[in-house]
Design a protein around this nucleic acid. Structure first.
Lengths: 214, 214, 214, 214
DNA sequence: AATGAATGAGAGTTCATTCAT
DNA sequence: GATGAATGAACTCTCATTCAT
């Protein structure tokens, strides 16, 4: 008797292929990663690869699906509403940045952005399972804060996007372009603090709505 | 005797190769662009290509160098300080976004971000000749505004980065990921207006400095 | 105990494999037909195929043997001698042509002729069980007609071959080469009529034997 | 200065590739002949092959075109009208049969018939450049003979097809199926003689037209 | 008896690169 | 200086076949 959580041998092998292929795709990019190389790392023959995935694109799609699953974890925005506004945003901003700074996540972003023209679904899938969900959660949180008068009324989704953008403004932007030294965790925290401060001032409740559509 | 401005026949040919190769690299990416294809478009033989550039990487490097020159035009921030703060920022933000939305610029960003790990100088060169210069100019402008009391005191470079980030927050972010429909010029303007509003409120002079290190 | 007519489960499965393989070999040719494809159509695994036939060649041989059985039906020449000479020949010629024009028979001819060099027994088996038998029957019939003075004396087998060749002269010849449009049943009948007329005139009894060796 | 008849080095190489590929295609069939094998026989690399022909199909097409050229020689029907009817037909029939019995021509027929379904142009090209031309010439000749009263009036093209079919009736038919021993030249001559006799009797002038449409 | 899984060999094709002319 | 021709290595993908279960 096999419980739901147990994987058949085939599924296990499949997962292992995906996992190895993921590493290679991330490291070398879609075009430069070869099926031979992947097969060799997997420890099987090319034909075996093709017994599991009918073409390179399909393997890539499975990798994409697999990674995108990882992005949908709620760890980042789990206890978004816990303390006061600034604390909540700081905690969340730090987690967001910590996540998108991870080497693997960076590689993913490079891959997706680099191939977005040639694999249009790629960006779609990732955005939906990654940033979109975080934005949704932050947006809901901000909406509530607006309802409670802790922030001025404004389009909450756009506000969430502004918040996210402010967090990424310096360090992540430079990492994407791979320019300058990797920012240290301290710098990173500095930047998120600054982002939170700017955001809170901009969306402070004492002024009339500002980014609402006219 | 040849003056500095005149190009030898060899240099002219070289330029023409670079220009054609640029278009192809931008359209197809580094890996997918083939020397055969480039040679065919140039109208010469592959061997001729190799007479000018000793390998594909070198040709790519030359293309990169060439493009980086184009990004240094001052049109975007030319008359940055012309009217009142909001007008200046709006005008500049619109030009920034209009520029980075151009198909060719988008292709460049994809190429550079996608290959940044494998061609580390790529991002460096681009950031220095592109965004960095704009950020410098905006930063100077903001510094002056702070000096004049039209904005609160804060790290002007970080402020410039915040401004840039707010402008890119929604539309450009999605274009990078190639998700959803291409934003219309009207939406784009809306977003820049919102960015300017948020920025000005955050950096309004009536409050204590906020993004300074504590 | 299993009587001759009953098939064991194994034999039944074997037959079903042969029957499906036949269809695929006929449609795709020997080289292009893949064991995977056959196994998939059979509904079993490739390993099962190999449990019944030790290699592709053997499976093909079994298919060949099987088909050759089907060609020995007597429908074509069943009531060869029924009326007058012309009627008998017309009826028989029409049936012959109708038979060899069938898509499956055409596919068979292509397969056998195309692979005859690489599978020499193929042609042998087919000729013996197919054309040879028809030729024998027609030959016997013509022999009798000669004995009765309705045809001049001649080598009856060669006469039969001439008759068959005349029937195939135009339409079937072009179908083999796959040239021009598929002849209609009307054209086909025209051609057989012409063949019968030419044959009967050539072998009319009022002249001396003509195809006898001089 | 290069005369029309001389071939450039490229053309010569191309011809040599075609000639070697021809031998291999004829011997192994289209599917079983591999580009690697052909390249090896040519003495170059596969990439060179692809510099001359952009895919296997194109190389095959070039081979087909080349062979079909060989079929259009007029040697067979050159001096068709030289003596009396029987002599002319005998001479022509013998040449026809001698030609289509050549090993290379047999291989070609197998190839074309075997692949006719998958390469429909194949049969077309061959029939047009091969049999069709001979049939046209024989048909013209028969037309004249009919005009002169040496043969009865009838559709001359059908008559030509009948003549050709009678010549192929036994020996060539069996060679196509690769059944029985290869007929000797003597047998072959016997058969053509018989074919001529049958044809002449059938189309003798003393009877009413017979294969005309009713 | 049946099968899912595995594989070496080889298919057609393209690549960046070199070299004699 | 320019080129046509050549190539080895690598690519994605498929094949007939085997073996542990």
């Amino acid at each position: 008797m096999v419980s739901k959580i147990e994987l058949s041998s085939r599924d296990r092998r499949r997962q292992s292929i995906i996992s190895i292929a993921k590493a290679i795709f991330l490291k070398e990019g879609y075009g430069a990663a070869s099926m031979s190389h992947i097969a060799a790392e997997v420890g099987g023959s090319k034909a075996t690869l093709y017994a599991y995935f009918k073409c390179k694109t399909d393997l890539f799609a499975a990798v994409v699906e697999s990674i995108s699953g990882e992005f949908s974890g709620d760890a980042i925005t789990a206890d978004l509403a816990r303390g006061d506004l600034r604390d909540d945003l700081l905690r969340t901003g730090l987690r967001l940045i910590a996540f998108i700074r991870q080497p693997e996540t960076m590689a993913m972003q490079r891959l997706v952005i680099g191939e977005a023209e040639r694999f249009p679904e790629l960006g779609q899938v990732f955005f939906e399972t990654g940033p979109r969900q975080k934005l949704n959660q932050i947006s809901s949180y901000l909406q509530k804060a607006m309802d409670e008068g802790r922030l001025r009324r404004a389009d909450p989704m756009l506000a969430a996007e502004h918040f996210f953008a402010l967090c990424r403004a310096r360090g992540h932007h430079r990492m994407l372009w791979n320019v300058g030294p990797r920012p240290s965790p301290e710098e990173m925290e500095q930047e998120v603090r600054a982002a939170v401060a700017v955001f809170c001032d901009a969306y402070a409740p004492h002024l009339a709505p500002l980014n609402a559509a006219p």
